[in-house]
Structures are given as C-alpha cells and as structure tokens.
Design a protein around this nucleic acid. Sequence first.
DNA 1: CCCTTCATGTACCAAATGGTACACTACGAG
DNA 2: CTCGTAGTGTACCATTTGGTACATGAAGGG
Lengths: 196, 196
Amino acid sequence: MKGNSGRQQLLDAVIEHFTDDGLADQSLRHIAAGVGTSHRMLLYHFGSKEELLVAVARAVEERTLDQFAAVSGAGEATTDEVVRLMWAHVADPALGDFERLFFALYGRALQGDERMRPLLGENIQRWLDANVAAAATQGVPAETARVHARLGLAVTRGLLLDLLATGDRAGTDAALDAFARHYSGTWCEATIESAS
Amino acid sequence: MKGNSGRQQLLDAVIEHFTDDGLADQSLRHIAAGVGTSHRMLLYHFGSKEELLVAVARAVEERTLDQFAAVSGAGEATTDEVVRLMWAHVADPALGDFERLFFALYGRALQGDERMRPLLGENIQRWLDANVAAAATQGVPAETARVHARLGLAVTRGLLLDLLATGDRAGTDAALDAFARHYSGTWCEATIESAS
DNA sequence: CCCTTCATGTACCAAATGGTACACTACGAG
DNA sequence: CTCGTAGTGTACCATTTGGTACATGAAGGG
C-alpha cells in the first residue's frame, strides 16, 4: 500500500523542490539531491520518473482544490464576492512560486502526458460542481451558477497568469476590480441592478 | 536577421513538431528526427538546445501577437466586441494544438528559464499598448482602455485554458457570452476610477 | 532469536544525451 | 580554375540518464 509516511513526506519535499527550482529538465538525481535523498529512493517509492511526475501533478491538483474549498466554503457568495475572495487569496505573492509550478504542470499536462490530462478536467469540473452546490442553497439555478463560476475561475486564472508574468499587481488588481464591479450582486444575468 | 532561409524553415518545422508531439523531455535527436534532419543541423543553426528553445518561444510569441493584431486591427471595438472576436478566433479547434504549445511554453517560461521570461511580459504589454492606442482614436482614456483590455485578455486566456482542458465548448462559450453581455457597450462610463 | 518486511545505500549498466572535430559538398565571386 | 563560405554527414566523446541487482539495516512478530 501507498504508506502515507515516507512516501508522502518525500512527495511534499519534491513539490517544494519543484516550486523553488522549476520542474523542467530535472533528472531524478537532481531532484533527489534537492530533497536530500538518493535517486534510488525516488525510484523505490514511485517506481519510475513518470510516475513521480504524475504523483506530483495529482498532489498539486489536490492542493489547489483545497485552496478553492477554503474560498467557496465561506458561506454566502455572489459572483463578485467569490472572485474577490479568490483573487485576494491567489494573488498573494507568497504563493507565487507555487502558482508558477501549477501553471508549468498544467501546460505540460495539456500537451501529451496522457496520464495527467484527466486531472485537469476534473480540477475544473469539481470547482464548478462545488459552486453550483453552494449556489443551490441560495435558490440559484444550476445552469446560471455554473456559467458564473466558470467565468469567475477564468478571470482569476487569466489575471493570475498576467500577474505572474508582468508582476504588475496594481494593474491586475484594477482589472479584477473592474470585473467584480460589473458583476456586483449578480446572481442571474437578467438582474443587473443599476445601483451604484 | 539570421538568414530567413534555412534557419527559419527549420524553426517552423520544429514548432510544428512541438505542436504535434509536445515539447517536454524531447532530445535534440528526437526533434531532429521529427523534422527530418539531424541533431547536428539543429546545433549548427541554433548553437545549443537552450537557444533552440528560446528561438521557438520567441517565434511562438510573435505568432500569437499576430493573432492579436488580426483581431484588434478590425477597426472600432468596445470591450465586448473585441472579446467576442478574440474568442471566436482563439477557440477554433484547428488551433487547439498550437494553443497547447503556447501554454506549455508559457508555463515553462514562468518557472526559471530566465531567458524566456521577459518575452511573457512583453507579450501582454504589447497587447495592452495596441488596445490603448486603438481606444485613443475613440477618445477613450488610456487608463480605462488598459484595464478593459487587460480584463478581456484574462477572460479569453482563462476560458481557453478551460476549453483546452475540458473540451467543453458549449460551456466556455456560454461563460464568454455572459461576460460580453455584461460588458456590452462599455467603454468608460461604468468605470470611474477615482482611486486604486 | 530468527524470520520477514520495509527501507536504504552502493555499485553498476546499457542507452541516450548535448556537444565537438573533421571531412566533404555545393556554389558563387574573383 | 580557385578559393572561401555556408551547409551537411559521419564519427566520436565524456557525461548523464533512468533503471536494476544486491547487500545491508532496522523493526517487529512468532
């Protein structure tokens, strides 16, 4: 069985290493040196390099989903509120390196690496489902909630991509603010309240 | 201007190869075989593997900027119009593989690979500048245009990421439509930024 | 106290890697 | 014709690669 002791610990260390040093073109020996073990141990616990990468991808996905949960678990939420919360959480400079790792894995998974691809769809799907469920408690139709959650996620990810590339926090903040303002109080698209 | 003859031709072939086969963990020999040449030739024309990758990244960036130009060159445009046009262009399934390559490179550039990072910022910056210039001809203040262009780009990229992962064209279309509807006709009046 | 099981280190391997040396061709300019 | 220069093929190299074989260690149950 996948003993959560040594293996999990090692996996966390590998993720941290990738977070700092990038995951491109790393040999098992580099990784092992980076986490203070031998490449032999990585093979022992994960079987092969590819399986290691898959485990990393899976763990990173799990972690991002936890971040989502922390945000959407905050009770009531209109689209603009959720997006603002998510942005505040995700734009934290302390998380920058981890976000970079996420996008690096994501990009890699999009291209080939068949074993990683399903995770990506799941990632988004689970996020949408969670939001739909949350919205249901407010009597919001599932289809509407799904569309808005999807858009909110896209805005956040798109701006995060921008922020990580340009480092322009003020500019991306302003863009997110513009979005949230246009969506303030919006639950279903028919009800745009013209209050200021 | 390094001779646009052999080198450029080779570069295009490499990009096409990466588009089809992915760029992760490819050796010079794999690439060479994929484009019908020898790894010796790649070294001859590009000097080293890293320089090859940089050349690829630069060329891909150029290509995406051309895509942008094709969209924003279409005369008048409010935020929702530009976004709709851009989405229609970018969500074309025929471009899927290329977009995947773009995001793979982007993710890789975000992590390490110092020589690639500047390109990313430039990519966004040039897009924003182009939009600001276009908006200026309509008397739209630069700051406002910049914010909206930024948001539009983020929405498009975020939804594209979603589309490529999930393949859910209908869902992403709906999300983009929701966004565009909320922004329809928006130029400035709704976004008075007295402070940031 | 032995036996088994999980964990780890050492040594090794065949294959592949990025890069180089050198010889050769093609060809346009003088 | 000759010469220089750009392009290409062949052969090679030292190093590194992912992966394996085997011995060892530590823990725990019988």
